[in-house]
């Protein structure tokens, strides 16, 4: 029925000059084209040039590509990015599902829990990074203050520890958001499924694995897409927390791009990294879409 209505309204709109509707989309299109679409093409074009931000932009063909691709810094940055992506996903996903399932209960105190719980969502990465930097300072942080040796480590000075801190702080910032997604997902699972399983004598663990998890499939895909694609562009947090250090232990792609471009003034090379970032992002989105069997954003289009 709605399809018929839709066709009627659309033909009606078209018949009296649907010409007006495209004009309405124009401001958004122009804004998006100038500051997102043109830069997207620009990043590819600039990757074939050399530019030190002061002089002229010179066309140098594949020079910047050769420079980046032969630099051992690139595989390292890719590896760091991959590791951050994998570890933060591997830590956040189970935790977010557990918490989301718990918060989906309707007890009053859980609502209160949720209020406190979601505070990290509101804070800027810069504020979070500064807080943890001060908190973990080996001389003046809580470890020293409490006199606890295991907390008094050079958290940001040892490569392994610094990496762990980055994963932890990322989780601190984003677990609430993903728990919120899972909370919403769990609340949409039809109760009748649990009632039927209960009649069959299934226990809680069994129900979790045979009802909750499969029913959360699309939420898991959406949440994972956001986590994985999002972790490609972790910049603020790492920039303020470790600046890629110690050494280049936490120098992920986005930070590598910034450093090559705005600190080493090699804009061509930085754009090569930009192109790689875009490609990895697109590949990830396509891959997850393939796994999920549908577009993670499609549920919105279907009005689900």
């Amino acid at each position: 029925m709605s399809a018929i209505t839709a066709r009627r309204t659309s033909s009606a709109a078209a018949s009296r000059g649907g010409g007006v509707l495209p004009w309405l989309a124009l401001p958004a299109l122009v804004a998006f084209a100038v500051f997102a679409l043109i830069p997207l093409i620009g990043v590819l074009l600039l990757s074939f040039t050399s530019w030190d931000t002061l002089g002229e932009i010179q066309l140098t063909g594949l020079e910047s590509w050769r420079q980046v691709l032969t630099d051992p810094g690139l595989p390292h940055a890719l590896w760091v990015t991959f590791l951050i992506m994998l570890l933060s996903w591997g830590f956040q996903t189970p935790a977010s599902i557990l918490i989301g399932v718990f918060l989906a209960g309707h007890q009053r105190y859980r609502e209160l829990l949720a209020v406190l719980y979601f505070i990290p969502l509101l804070l800027s990465s810069a504020a979070i990074a500064i807080t943890f930097k001060a908190l973990l300072d080996p001389n003046f942080g809580i470890g020293a203050g409490l006199g606890l040796d295991f907390l008094t480590q050079d958290w940001l000075g040892e490569p392994g520890l610094a990496f762990g801190v980055v994963i932890f702080v990322v989780s601190w910032q984003y677990i609430p958001f993903h728990s919120l997604l899972y909370q919403g997902g769990v609340r949409q699972i039809p109760r009748s499924l649990y009632e039927a399983a209960e009649l069959d004598g299934a226990g809680r663990v069994r129900m979790f694995f045979s009802i909750t998890l499969p029913q959360l499939k699309y939420t898991i895909i959406t949440s994972s897409t956001l986590m994985l694609v999002g972790s490609l562009t972790f910049f603020d947090l790492i920039f303020v927390l470790t600046e890629g250090g110690p050494g280049d232990a936490t120098r992920a792609l986005a930070l590598d791009m910034y450093k090559r471009g705005f600190q080493a003034n090699l804009m061509g090379a930085a754009c090569v990294i930009g192109v790689i970032l875009v490609l990895v992002g697109l590949a990830l989105a396509l891959l997850l879409r393939r796994i999920g069997g549908r577009d993670p954003y499609a549920s919105q289009l279907e009005g689900a």
Binding site: G18, P22, L29, P39, V229, V278
Partner: peptide, 29 residues
Amino acid sequence: SSGANRFLRGVNSLFLMGLAIPLQATVIP
């Protein structure tokens, strides 16, 4: 337009693509 207008369909797909691309990668341009 409920998908009847080709231009608007294109605009829609363009914005959807914009969701999948890390736009921060374009900061240099």
